[in-house]
Amino acid sequence: MQDASRPSEAVVTVSEERAVSRLVRVPVERVRVRTRVVTEVVRVDVEVRRQELVVERVPVDEDEARAAATTDLGEPEEVVVVLHEEVPVVTTETRPVERVTVRARRVESTTPVTVDLSREVVEVEQDAGRG
Rank of each mutant, 00 (worst) to 15 (best):
A19N: 00
V42G: 02
G74Q: 02
R95Y: 04
T94C: 04
T111A: 13
D3G: 05
R18Q: 04
V41H: 14
E64I: 01
V58R: 11
S8E: 12
V41K: 15
T91N: 04
V60A: 15
E9A: 13
E98W: 08
E56Y: 01
R32Q: 12
R43Y: 09
T110Q: 07
E64G: 13
V102S: 10
D116S: 08
T110A: 09
V100A: 03
E52Y: 02
R106V: 13
G129M: 11
S5W: 14
R119L: 02
A68W: 00
V42N: 00
P59M: 05
E85R: 15
A104R: 14
V12D: 02
R105S: 03
V58Y: 02
R49V: 05
D127N: 10
V33N: 10
R36C: 03
E29G: 01
R106K: 01
V12L: 11
R49K: 06
V12I: 15
T70A: 13
S109N: 03
V82K: 06
T70P: 01
L23Y: 10
T111C: 12
A67C: 02
V44G: 01
G74K: 11
V107N: 06
H84T: 03
T114Y: 02
R49A: 11
R34A: 15
V102N: 06
E78M: 06
V87R: 15
A65D: 08
V81N: 02
V90C: 07
